[in-house]
Design a protein around this nucleic acid. Structure first.
Length: 294
DNA sequence: ATCCAGGATCTCC
DNA sequence: GGAGATCATGGA
């Protein structure tokens, strides 16, 4: 990947497996806005790591702005997972798997973002029994209420310290609903050190998961999302209703099966790339909901 | 109006 | 250890 810096714009001219609309709209993150998409350029605005980033993708270049060289190298290369070769992953997942082939071909430009762990934790607590547009609204409400103002209309996701003034009533004003008590429990346990959101604090991913599961409102699926999207544990395969539907239909001959069987199949078939497979499949499933209507 | 959503928990058996 | 109700909120 080659890039250069002009004023406050970083321009990438060579890349593979990067389509900004697919990366953001595939359900892994919530703090973005589509500015425009036409034939020449796709423009999105992202809020992450206390910054607002504008991404403009043309046929021959991708522009990141405002962005200096340091931020690009210290933050965004990791955030967009730009050092990983997704062609290798896709080739492995392709083998002997016509379903994965279709899912990947449908969105070859997906990448798994490396997001802030704390933000991922709170965001996916909010995601339970909820819809993506509503999740985005709630997170935006929370950021406006407790987070720092970055620009005129962009607020950073609150830090743990900023969340200290959060109350049940305050969170409910942000439309968190019944999840407010779960958020408060997460905040308390992270603050006390009972739950540790540090990539280096545990030797195995299963220990991280055990640690996360102590939080009231964090179950198997939310924990797996935090592991995959926050802790960069790409072998985890978050199994929500959509994954259940698409796995049941295409890998279990449309016959209902247990969560455990789905996990086992994902592990044996996708292995260390299960998390990537999950994102291709999830994205594929939500784009064709009519496939799963009985 | 009724149903359901990137689930988890509680209750009951 | 599985099945069913419940949890806010809002869009279809």
């Amino acid at each position: 990947m080659k890039y250069e810096t002009i004023d406050d714009i970083v321009i990438v001219r060579e890349w593979n497996s990067f389509e900004i609309d697919q990366i953001l709209e595939c359900g892994q993150c919530f703090r973005f806005e589509k500015i425009e998409t036409d034939n020449d350029v796709k423009t999105y605005e992202i809020i992450a790591f206390e910054r607002v980033l504008n991404v403009r993708q043309y046929a021959d270049r991708i522009e990141f702005s405002p962005c200096n060289k340091q931020d690009f190298e210290n933050i965004w290369i990791d955030y967009f997972d730009l050092k990983r070769d997704y062609e290798i992953i896709k080739n492995v997942l392709y083998e002997n798997d016509i379903v994965m082939r279709d899912a990947i071909e449908f969105a070859r430009g997906i990448r798994i973002l490396n997001q802030d762990i704390f933000e991922v934790l709170i965001s996916f607590i909010i995601s339970q029994n909820n819809r993506i547009p509503q999740i985005k609204k709630v997170i935006k409400n929370i950021s406006m209420k407790y987070g720092s103002k970055i620009t005129d209309n962009a607020y950073a996701f609150p830090t743990l310290t900023q969340f200290e003034k959060a109350t049940d009533a305050g969170l409910r004003e942000c439309k968190t609903g019944f999840r407010s008590k779960y958020i408060l429990d997460a905040l308390e346990k992270v603050d006390s050190g009972q739950v540790i959101l540090d990539k280096n604090a545990f030797s195995t991913a299963d220990e991280i998961k055990e640690n996360l599961l102590q939080i009231k409102g964090v179950g198997n699926k939310v924990a797996d999302c935090v592991l995959l999207f926050g802790f960069s544990r790409h072998e985890y395969f978050p199994t929500d209703v959509w994954i259940k539907r698409i796995m049941t239909k295409f890998y279990f001959n449309n016959k209902e099966t247990s969560q455990d069987n789905i996990q086992k199949l994902a592990n044996s078939r996708f292995g260390e790339y299960a998390g990537f497979a999950q994102q291709y499949l999830f994205n594929y499933a939500i784009q064709f909901p009519e496939l799963f209507k009985n």
